[in-house]
């Protein structure tokens, strides 16, 4: 077994620690970007739903601005956003290099992405339920918390998994600013040094993370779905 591994994965076997470090960095970036970006994206998504025409807090101007803002940010390729946000990153984190620095552009790109997904998920909630809740005398905030977020929960979990997977992909690109992680490992070591086995194992680890996210979200959906 050992001989087989050394034959086919020579570079991996010689320094397995780098894979542990890179996996931790990828999880670190994904986790914190998901927490900050997910939280803010959820809020933005809810605001998009309630300010749209016919919404609970209808506000055409605000909706127009937010809607265009989301489109704008989503139109910028992530690799360019990394460069564009360098100044802001420097200001917030104090450096533009490393996993922590990569969090700023990651969060910035996750917010509009997730907001749009949440918006779509919440628009799936039957308008009849909103009407019924209004007829019962619920407050608007009550309707957001007890109807939209509760009835749209399955949809939100589903798009969370999607966002998570997309985020894992983005962390690979964050390697471009020296963020580390599995993607960085696959490119800077595996590709640039022609160590194909490193690329292969890094890819495998990324796939495992992706499948794990999908698996967990499916478990949650199964538990909370009653349709």
């Amino acid at each position: 077994m050992q001989a087989l591994l050394e034959k086919y994965l020579p570079n991996v076997v010689s320094d397995p620690q780098i894979f542990v470090d890179a996996t931790i960095q990828t999880i670190y970036m994904t986790f914190w970007a998901a927490i900050f970006g997910g939280g803010l994206g959820l809020i933005l998504g809810v605001i998009l739903v309630v300010t749209r025409p016919g919404g609970l807090y209808e506000n055409k101007t605000l909706f127009w601005i937010l809607d265009k803002f989301v489109n704008l940010i989503r139109s910028i390729p992530f690799i360019i956003l990394l460069a564009l946000l360098a100044v802001i990153t420097q200001f917030i984190v104090g450096t533009t290099i490393g996993a922590k620095a990569a969090l700023v552009p990651l969060v910035a790109t996750v917010i509009p992405f997730f907001a749009r997904q949440v918006e779509t998920a919440l628009l799936e909630v039957d308008p009849g339920l909103i009407e019924a809740a209004q007829a019962m005398g619920l407050s608007r905030l009550g309707i957001i918390c007890r109807v939209y977020l509760r009835e749209g929960l399955v949809g939100i979990v589903r798009v969370s998994a999607l966002t998570m997977i997309s985020l894992i992909g983005l962390t690979a690109m964050a390697g471009a600013v020296g963020a580390g992680g599995l993607g960085d490992l696959a490119i800077s070591q595996g590709y640039n040094r022609f160590e194909n086995d490193v690329t292969f194992v890094a890819t495998l680890l990324i796939l495992i993370l992706v499948f794990l996210s999908q698996f967990i979200s499916n478990l949650i959906i199964k538990k909370i779905s009653h349709q």
Binding site: L129, E131, A132, M136, G137, E151, V154
Partner: peptide, 19 residues
């Protein structure tokens, strides 16, 4: 909202909370 509690309403498609 308080007054609406005195006026119940039912609908064609029932509008029950599925969750």
């Amino acid at each position: 909202r308080q007054k609406r509690k005195d006026i119940g309403m039912i609908f064609q498609h029932f509008n029950l909370l599925e969750a």
